[in-house]
Amino acid sequence: MIVSVSHRSVYRYDAPLRLAVQSLRLTPSHFDGQKVLSWEISVEGGTRGGAFRDGAGDWIESWSVRGPADRVEVAATGTVDTTDLAGMLRGHRETVHPLVYLRETPATMIDTALADLAAGAARGATSPLDTCHALSNAVRAAIAYRPGVTGAHTSAAEALALGEGVCQDHAHALIAAARSLDIPGRYVSGYLLADQDGKEHEAAHAWAELWVGELGWIGFDPANACCPNDLYIRIGSGFSAQDAAPIRGIASGPGAEALDVTVAVTAGQQ
């Protein structure tokens, strides 16, 4: 499927910034399920710095904006040809060993409730893949989709206690639940073509990948109770939302920052 993306982030400052530096993980991954037809990143008034593919296979670009400036606009636009691989990350080149993703982060700490959820879900599972599906379903059942109740720093344990959250919370909870069973898991940032089924979705999306032995990394999207298919565009991964963030930046200056994000994901060429 041909999917087009236009992702704009506008940072506004109430006092001029001196220098903004950004690390952008904002380019679709290379693997058998995605072929990038065109992709462009631009930062208004910015200078492009180093660019490289990291050990996890993500393309990283560094940008800086020298002040004085009162806004920074980051835009990523392009078109990707996607194929449904039922969540499999086939043909993705990376050097990070899966065991690295057993690391605990503040967002993915395991508490008793998460461990119980995982143990309950795994009971009766007939294969490692089956276990992962069961975990994803259990997370979906335990955390209802509801925007606005959780925030950027809500942990998996807190979201589970609330019983509500968004895709970030689902992904964190799935990673923590998997790790409680010694299954490596990681956070994935990307986009979702949302207007196909008429339901409410987030266009800038996140899900989790779990390591399923010989099958490698497989994506699970608890928020939509499925594995990523050709409606998904994968951008990059990390231990948590913070580690996998498409944009990590710091502006120096006295001003307070306000962020405005618009993401449009559409079928076909733009």
Partner: peptide, 8 residues
């Protein structure tokens, strides 16, 4: 941004 410069 230091690590990006380093890694590139």
């Amino acid at each position: 941004g230091l690590m990006d410069v380093y890694r590139s």
